[in-house]
Amino acid sequence: MPDTDPISTDLTELVQATPGVRIVYDAASTIGRVLDKVVDFVTGRESDTNPVVVKEPKSGTQVRVNIGVSDDESASDVCRRVHDAVAAYLEQQGDEASEISVKVCSIG
């Protein structure tokens, strides 16, 4: 199930706001429906939980993000941008990130 951790909440909002990101998919679920509605953090969502998965084992915080990007820019660039935004946020929090995974699941 998606995370309810406050870090997850912040990260979801952060990813959603990153230029080039069209949709934030649920990174924890293995079953995604093809007619996903856009997860719009600002206008509200269907569930109370956040799609960004955050785990905090002793080895360091692990973050998993699945995104859909718009066609306007390079998907690789947007992917890296999201990673960098997440990394910067965690560093700001004094968090040691051991792994940040960002997967692009749709383009355009």
């Binding site: 998907a75 992917c79 890296r80 990394a87 051991s98 792994e99 940040i100 995974s101 960002v102 997967k103």
Partner: peptide, 9 residues
């Protein structure tokens, strides 16, 4: 970054 796992499906 060695901690980055970036991919596109």
């Amino acid at each position: 970054s060695p901690n980055a796992r970036l991919s596109v499906t």
